[in-house]
C-alpha cells in the first residue's frame, strides 16, 4: 500500500478502510491524516505478518506473484460474497492437529424459530464426547457454551490419538434439546506410536538422525486459534 494508491480513494473509502484495519479515527479529519494513520497501521501489520509467518510458506508463496492489491486485500479481510448457509440443521467436525478441532454448524430456520418454544432459550451447547462407542455413549464429555449467533468454534481437545464427536444442543429448561450430531473424527498422534524405550538402540539412533527431535510438540504457536477467535469458552 502506498500514498499513490490511497490518494485515489474517496475520504469515505479511507474511513472505511481505517475502520476495517481497527483504527478508531475521529470524524472530520483531513484526508492527509487519515492516509498517514492507515499507512502507519499497515506498516505495523506488515511487520507482524512477516514475523509470524513460516519461512517455508513464504517460499511457496513466491510462485503466486502478487500485486500491490494484495496489501489492501490483506488489510480489508473481506468476507465472502455468497450466502453463508444452506438452511439445514447440521454440524460438522474437522480435526486440525493433535490438540484442536474445528466445528461448524447451521440450524434450519424452522428449527431455530421453534427452539425451546414455551421456554426461554439461552444459547447453544456443544457437547464434546470422547471415544464414542457404537451405542452412542462416550467415555468422557465436556460442554462448551456458545451463543445463538455463533456458527463455528475451535475446540481444544484433551487428548491426541482419540475419537471425538460433537452434539449440538439448544440450551432449554428443564433440559437441553439435541439439534444435531456431528461425524466422528480421530485426532492425530503428537508422539510416536511406541515409546522410544521400546525400540532397539539402532532404531532410536536412526530416528534421531531422521530429525525426530524437531518433530516433537512445540510451545503454543503465535497463531493460537483462541487468538484468532478472540475468546474461548471456559
Amino acid at each position: 500500500m502506498n500514498v499513490e494508491r490511497l490518494t485515489g480513494l474517496s475520504i469515505e473509502a479511507l474511513y472505511a478502510l481505517a475502520e476495517k484495519m481497527g483504527l478508531d479515527l475521529p470524524a472530520g479529519l483531513e484526508r492527509l491524516f487519515v492516509m498517514e494513520s492507515i499507512l502507519e497501521a499497515f506498516e505495523e501489520d506488515l511487520v507482524d505478518r512477516k514475523s509470524s509467518g513460516q519461512t517455508a510458506s513464504h517460499m511457496e508463496e513466491k510462485k503466486f506473484s502478487g500485486s500491490e492489491l494484495d496489501e489492501i486485500d490483506a488489510s480489508l479481510d473481506a468476507a465472502p460474497c455468497i450466502e453463508n448457509r444452506y438452511n439445514e440443521t447440521v454440524i460438522h467436525l474437522i480435526p486440525r492437529d493433535p490438540e484442536w478441532a474445528f466445528v461448524f454448524w447451521d440450524i434450519k430456520d424452522d428449527d431455530f424459530d421453534g427452539l425451546c418454544r414455551g421456554s426461554e432459550s439461552a444459547g447453544l451447547i456443544l457437547r464434546v464426547g470422547m471415544n464414542p462407542g457404537p451405542d452412542g455413549t462416550c467415555q468422557d464429555s465436556f460442554d462448551v457454551n456458545v451463543s445463538q449467533e455463533d456458527d463455528h468454534w475451535y475446540l481444544q481437545l484433551p487428548e491426541a490419538d482419540a475419537d471425538y464427536r460433537v452434539e449440538l444442543y439448544a440450551r432449554c429448561n428443564p433440559r437441553p434439546r439435541l439439534l444435531a450430531r456431528s461425524n466422528t473424527i480421530r485426532t492425530p498422534r503428537a508422539l510416536t506410536a511406541e515409546s522410544m524405550d521400546a525400540l532397539d538402540e539402532t532404531a532410536v539412533e536412526v530416528a534421531a538422525l531422521s530429525g525426530l527431535d524437531s518433530l516433537m510438540p512445540q510451545q503454543v504457536p503465535d497463531r493460537h486459534p483462541s487468538r484468532i477467535l478472540g475468546g474461548f469458552d471456559d
Partner: peptide
C-alpha cells in the same frame, strides 16, 4: 515417524 508401528529405518 508417528506412524504405526514406529519405523525402524527412520
Amino acid at each position: 515417524m508417528l506412524g504405526k508401528p514406529t519405523p525402524l529405518t527412520g
